Simulated assay, not measured.
Amino acid sequence: MNSYLDFDGVAKRYGAFQAVSDFTLPIHEGELVALLGPSGCGKTTSLRMLAGFVQVSEGSIRLAGKDITQLPSYRRNVGMVFQGYALFPHLTVEENVAFGLEMRKMKPAEIGPRVQKALARVRLESLAKRLPRELSGGQQQRVALARAMAIDPAVLLLDEPLSALDARLRHEVRAEIRQLQKDSGLTTLMVTHDQDEALSMADRLVIMNQGRIEQIGTPDEVYERPINRFVAEFMGKSNFLDGKMGGEGRFDSKLGQVFAGHAADAGRTGAPALMSFRPERVQLRRVDTPVADGCNGVQGRIVRITYLGPLIEYRIALKDDTEITALLPNTGELGYVGGDASSDESVYTAPGSPVSVQWQARDSRLLPA
């Protein structure tokens, strides 16, 4: 499948500072791709280079087969939803949505139907005469989205589109945006630092760090198979054990134990490496429980327990003082894992309690140190 939008070796420099380096990314028509990374990693700069607000220092950008690298922003047919929505406070909802069409010198007879169609898409027809201050945060966000979509853009850009909303509303609106994007088939590039937002909305994730792309993949690929420590730490929580590659998916840990895992280009046999595994994949067993088939296991003691509502977080210290985390469902039997005190499977979980920590070998990722 040919790509619809192409970043080819794009870079941006501000004097001696390299904001973005060798940014190469093909995007297919109808895809929603999320740029994800910490503040200052270059994701917003990359978005703004596509919009034409920031000049490219190196490389090229092609959209629908056309090189747009040097085109002014108003000739790129790009719709953008800004972090703060950027609505005009003195204009009504319908006047805000009509603004981009008026700037394109569209005939008044054509503007009205386009505005009504855009407002219908976001279910705001009944609020057309209201001013932005008379709307909720979620409604303002939908007005900004309608304004961006009214111009029938070739690509839609979303710059932290949900950051101004509270947690409950953010969850609702991200589902609305995703459904709207799917229904319209609009190619979309989104910038966010929120992992949940990216995982739930995007077809593919682009993880960035210090101006460079670290990994590109579907949400499950990036989460389940990170290629390095940065990605594993940034996408959710991860546990790490130090050691070296033992060959054939074997990991020789500094704990003196040999574990099995899946290698992610962790290097040759004997090379320093890390074993990474997710806290929600950890199981706690009684300290005298044998390690189950297909699992890796270590012994440790619980040093901290944190109540998180639906989950309980356990911090476990190993014999070399490495600490790992286990995230287990809250079953209502606080103080025990695997049942109540009378159960043969129960594990007493007060701080200081010894435990056997086990996790599946298939959930173990071997990474370069």
Rank of each mutant, 00 (worst) to 15 (best):
K43E: 04
R114N: 00
G309C: 08
M103Q: 15
D252Q: 15
R250Y: 10
P26S: 10
G79F: 00
E345L: 12
T269D: 14
N296Y: 04
F82W: 07
L101D: 03
P351D: 03
C41D: 09
Y85G: 08
L25R: 06
G211A: 09
A260N: 11
K66S: 15
E102T: 12
D6R: 13
A34D: 01
A144Y: 08
Y348N: 13
V355W: 01
I305M: 12
I68A: 07
R104K: 14
F99R: 09
A86H: 09
A341F: 15
R304P: 02
E95R: 14
L180P: 02
L328K: 01
D252G: 06
V222S: 02
I316A: 07
P329Y: 00
R133S: 13
L165A: 00
W359K: 08
A317D: 12
D203S: 09
F277I: 06
G309P: 07
M106F: 00
E172W: 05
K117D: 05
V115T: 02
D321H: 12
E313A: 14
P38R: 11
E214M: 12
A128I: 10
D252S: 12
E125M: 10
G243K: 00
L180A: 03
G100Y: 01
E233V: 09
V191M: 04
R250M: 13
A148R: 01
G300V: 04
A350H: 14
A98Q: 01
T192M: 08
K319I: 14
Y348L: 15
A120Q: 11
D363K: 14
D67C: 07
S238N: 14
F259H: 05
K66Q: 14
L255Q: 12
G65C: 02
P89R: 11
Q139H: 14
G294Q: 02
V93M: 08
A167W: 04
P290F: 07
A273L: 09
M149R: 00
Q195D: 10
A86C: 10
V287C: 09
A202V: 11
L241H: 03
M190F: 13
F234R: 02
G40A: 09
V291E: 05
G52H: 05
R104N: 04
L274T: 04
G270P: 14
R104F: 02
E95M: 05
R121W: 05
P272N: 03
L71H: 11
S163W: 01
G30N: 08
Q70W: 10
T331P: 05
